[in-house]
Amino acid sequence: MHDQDRHGDSTQAVPAISLPALLAGLVLPFCLVIGGGLALQAQRMAVFGVPLEIIWMFACFILVPACLTICWNLPSHARSGTDTKQVR
């Protein structure tokens, strides 16, 4: 084990933020977790003893990375959206 590893990305540029990236990476996860959780909580239902809203939160462990993966793969991130300012 070393401080660095082969999978590390050593690019020093900070990726720019675009509107689609914000929608996919921030707004959508908040809507899914909070909106979905509250909507299901109001139903007051359970499956095998586990409340629906808790099952939904568990599902969000997969859905949030999916949103962030979409955000990461947005074209603006890979090409024009990258801030080329180098940090010291």
Binding site: I17, G25, L26, F30, V33, C60, V64, L68, C71
Partner: peptide
């Protein structure tokens, strides 16, 4: 869970 999208940016 939501600290990860916040941290992403």
């Amino acid at each position: 869970l939501l600290s990860y999208p916040v941290g992403y940016f």
